[in-house]
Design a protein around this nucleic acid. Structure first.
Lengths: 203, 203, 203, 203
DNA sequence: AATGAATGAGGGTTCATTCAT
DNA sequence: GATGAATGAACCCTCATTCAT
């Protein structure tokens, strides 16, 4: 059992991959709603019928695409932060990892969060990020000093701000490295937006 | 003279209003993409043809809906802040006004910003808010102390955070008054999210 | 009884005339099928409802337009040929009258016979002409020398040829006067198309 | 290899043929304008969507129908007249071929030339025939005896007459064989319509 | 596993016609 | 008599999905 991927299986996986890649490009280019199954299959150079051999429908494929992206990001975060990260320091490092990942997966981030998404998709992705952030927040609560605000509210605040900063930077990096934009976001989140609390020279 | 806005015109305006109201409800319920022109006209109890007498297409109607909303909010803000608001104090007051307005126009805010929107719509609304915030920021820059961060980036940060907090609160107010949620957001924006800077008792 | 046309009636007739004129122009410009009732009423500067006060529908109006044209032509023919025309000579004269009339009523002839017509209209007009020609033919049959061909066939032959020659000339008169084109058509009809029977210098 | 026009392709061609046949019948019955795509697909017993798989729109299909008809007629003429026809004799023979073809393709001729056409279609078909006739005329001009009339005018004359005679005969053959009606038309065209020049016994 | 012809519900839109004013 | 808002049937067309091959 599990001897080899049976050429057949390799071929099948290859087709599936072609579809996912084509979908990412097409959706990033034309937007989720405007991209038809035909656009995807033509870009993948397979027949329309084949699509339904691999995915239940367009939403299924897109969800797969996004979950793959999340999984990859998670892996990367885990690797970068080690098994037991010390939270305080690790937050900024986590942001750095996320921005680096975003830079390398622009299409995917646009599909998840930008105009190219469907509102549905956008909210789903946002919720995913938000849940992850909430998880982290909950992990940091110490029993004798409970948080004065609901963790899910904090998570939404952070995620909303982070996503918009991320999109601003993905559209045009303004000469900022992933590390630089991570530092800015970290500072804004932890110190607020009043001029006094802002760094003197950002970039 | 001018006694009669020509019953005709009154009738027409009435129909137009019925369409706008029906559209707001239907889109809030089913989402922008899932709502057909037929759904709207049926809810408004007019014929499909009538729709096209008043609006070029679904997008036109929705844009009208949203612009109306923006206009109403702007009016309200202007009234509340007076002719010459002192910026520093007025920020929190502005947030209060916005949250009060949001509470009274849940459907509209969901349509603009929530899952019910199209991604396109969502970004457009977000941009609108973001531009308004940017405007305010630029208005506060004093020549001898320039902002260390691009105003549009700050605006995106604030808007992203604000919108998510707003949606969190619109979905379920968690027992928080508009004033309370405005205070929380203001605090998070100006002092950051670290536990130390958070108030002791939120609501 | 019949005192004066009662200002009211004059006004009504005036509106009717405006509609007919507008229709002729619009249909000549855009074609019968492509011309909407709205196009006509706007050109006539009356409301859409008014249209149906004067005509049952678009076809009714168009038929009226064409019948008016026929009536005018008939009047002109009667005047020109006198009460008892001697057939032989009168045929060419009749053609001259028709071509003169066509030149002065291009729009109408285009609507009846050209691309601007509906196929229905075209055949109706053609049948009208054909019937008129048949009438003439039957009037010339002398009992002891019956025609060797059915009069309706001859009439269709003549009408078909005449209409196409007429359209050729209406589109561009090629420098030919009504009299000249009438002479050509007469010659072709009576002598045939073989080179030998053709006149030496046409125009 | 090439044994199989890929059952797929055969099936597709079959569907296409069903659509063309159904369209010919329906348009012949109800007229071009009055026939909807739905009428055609129902008659062909395929779904509405299938229509658009084979033709861009109704006009596209109709053009195809007519061009097919022209092509078939042209083939037949070429076969009948041989490679190098002697013009003089061949004109009557050509008419015979055309009338035979018309008899076997009544629906198509009605669609192209009769009330069932759109005026547009009618003029297009007429122009096609007219151009063909003009071609023939030009081919017969001998340098030292130039035609005294413009070839296109002659062509229009002949075509107009021929089409009307053809329609007269297609509607009801009046007991005339294709050969007989061809002879009549030939005689009328070459000798004119005056009683003296007409044959004594028509059929 | 792959194909692509066929499906058909549903979308947006137009426009001749009606009718209350 | 004139108006024009409202009607609704009918149209063309797209596209996600199915299914026979």
């Amino acid at each position: 059992m599990k001897t080899q991927p049976t050429r057949h299986e390799r071929r099948k996986l290859h087709t599936r991959r072609k579809l996912l890649d084509a979908a990412r490009q097409e959706i990033a280019r034309r937007g989720y709603e405007a991209t038809g199954v035909l656009d995807i299959t033509e870009a993948a150079d397979v027949s329309k019928g084949t699509f339904y051999l691999h995915f239940r429908d367009k939403e299924d494929l897109t969800r797969t695409l996004i979950l793959e992206g999340f999984a990859a990001l998670r892996t990367r975060l885990t690797e970068a932060l080690g098994a037991s990260p010390r939270p305080a320091d690790s937050m900024e490092e986590a942001l750095r990892v996320v921005f680096r990942h975003a830079a390398e997966n622009r299409d995917l981030f646009r599909i998840m969060l930008g105009r190219q998404a469907s509102a549905e998709l956008q909210m789903t992705a946002l919720e995913y990020f938000s849940n992850a952030v909430e998880e982290i927040i909950r992990g940091q609560i110490v029993p004798d000093r409970p948080l004065p605000l609901p963790p899910d509210l904090l998570a939404r605040f952070i995620t909303g701000a982070g996503v918009q900063v991320g999109l601003w930077w993905i559209e045009d990096d303004h000469g900022l490295s992933p590390e630089a934009i991570a530092a800015i976001l970290y500072r804004l989140l932890t110190r607020g937006v009043l001029p006094d609390s802002l760094p003197v020279s950002p970039a």
